[in-house]
Simulated scan of single mutants.
Amino acid sequence: MTEIIIEELTNMGLNLQDIRGQGYDNGSNMKGDKARVQSRIKNLNSRAFYVPCSKLTLKPLSATRWESRIEALKPLRFQIGEVYNALLSIYENQDIDNLIRDESSGLLNCIKQFKFLCSIVVWYKILNCINPISKLMQTKDFDQASALDLLKNCKKFFKDLRSDKSFNESLIAAGELAAEIDIEANFESTIPRHRIRRKKNIFPYESRDKPIEDPKEKYKI
């Protein structure tokens, strides 16, 4: 199995030394720490640390690009607590390389931002809207009428996505993710590194644009 994984990485043009983690199901031939897949790969690259994935589902290598993005985002959308705990356990493990622990700390800092959680919710909605159209239009003889219906629905989706109702729904969903990792569901007010550059008025009747100071409104726009 180790040889198959390495061969597939080579076929995809990926360098084994660039790996910073491994995740498999709980099969003993995969997760074992002696002469098993994760152990053999770690012997080849000490930074390929193992993270157990009890709910991992293997997907065909031929998955479409959009579907692959959805699958990559799904753990953050629906298993944020498990992802957070895994990163935290890596950060707190003194036996792990400091560079890896620093990377885990940076990821934890991102996850703990409420605006990041909101972006996860919104982005997942967008991908779920685009994915059916993408899959349909990649078929050999797709039905144009069905494609047009999906495109119309997608157009309506993006229009509704900018509404106050949709925004508030996303805030509620993001709030549930925030509660799962025990952070406050509010937008952080941060001090910008540089002053906001004001737009120069060309005509005398133009008024100055006031910078948006409310973090929530700034994110919404």
Rank of each mutant, 00 (worst) to 15 (best):
K152T: 12
R197F: 11
R162E: 15
E176S: 06
E188P: 05
E188L: 15
K159N: 13
E184R: 15
E169K: 08
N186T: 14
K159A: 10
F187S: 08
A173T: 00
F187C: 06
R193N: 12
F187G: 09
A179G: 07
D182I: 01
I191S: 08
S163G: 02
A173W: 04
I191P: 10
R162K: 15
D164M: 03
H194P: 02
A185Y: 10
A179V: 06
R162D: 11
E176L: 02
N153T: 08
R195P: 07
R162Q: 15
E184W: 10
I183T: 02
I191L: 13
I191E: 12
K159P: 08
S163Q: 03
I183E: 04
S163P: 00
I172N: 01
T190S: 03
R197P: 05
E169L: 04
A173E: 04
N186R: 13
G175D: 09
A174H: 03
A179K: 03
A178Y: 07
R162V: 09
E169D: 14
A185D: 14
S189L: 02
I191M: 10
K156E: 10
N186Q: 14
R197K: 14
G175I: 06
N186Y: 06
F158E: 11
E188V: 08
F187T: 09
A178S: 11
E184M: 14
S170H: 02
A174F: 01
N186L: 10
I196Y: 15
S170M: 04
S163E: 02
N168C: 04
I183M: 04
F167M: 00
A179F: 04
A185F: 09
R193Q: 06
R193I: 06
D164H: 06
G175F: 07
N153G: 15
A178D: 07
F157L: 12
D182A: 00
C154F: 10
G175Y: 05
A174C: 11
R197W: 12
A185W: 11
L171P: 02
K152S: 13
E180H: 01
E180M: 05
R193S: 08
L171S: 00
C154N: 14
K156L: 13
A179E: 09
N168G: 02
A179Q: 09
L177G: 07
S163Y: 01
A173I: 03
D164L: 06
K199Y: 07
